[in-house]
């Protein structure tokens, strides 16, 4: 009881179809261009403190995520947030954070701050605390 569809006779492509194909191709290319453009404008790189220092001249005011450990004793409260240093063991960067740090924020813990260079310090508006389920930074001696 096998029923098989008879093969459909090949339809001679009409010249109109070519025009549709070209139009469709152009549309697809335009969409691709927009999407890739949108993507490249919204990429946020992760940088360790040393990488961030190295790429500072080329970074400009691009946003990126800075990874490092909070240097013990460097944290001070400001009117709208906190200022602290982060390190990856070899370099140190001052982070000016706007907003309250999260509950777990304390000396020595690894953090990821999102923001951009502002002069010699890093202007952050988002602090993420790293924990088990996420990316672990290389172990650093935060007491340096």
């Amino acid at each position: 009881m096998e029923v098989i569809d008879p093969p459909v006779p090949r339809v001679r492509p009409k010249p109109k179809r070519l025009r549709y194909l070209v139009a469709g191709g152009l549309c697809a290319a335009a969409v691709l261009f927009l999407v890739v453009g949108g993507l490249s404008r919204n990429i946020v790189y992760f940088r360790t403190v040393s990488e961030a220092v190295k790429s500072k001249p080329s970074e400009g005011t691009h946003r990126f995520r800075l990874m490092g450990a909070v240097v013990s004793g460097s944290t001070q409260r400001t009117t709208d947030g906190v200022v602290f240093d982060v390190t990856d063991g070899s370099n140190r960067v001052r982070v000016v954070h706007h907003g309250d740090p999260p509950e777990l924020f304390k000396d020595g813990i690894p953090v990821v701050c999102e923001g951009r260079w502002q002069g010699d310090s890093f202007d952050s508006d988002r602090i993420m605390i790293k924990h088990g389920a996420e990316y672990k930074p290389p172990a650093v001696d935060a007491s340096k």
Partner: peptide, 11 residues
């Protein structure tokens, strides 16, 4: 390592 920001998806 990089991440694609939410604005990409939203826009």
């Amino acid at each position: 390592k990089l991440s694609v920001g939410e604005p990409y998806f939203d826009r």
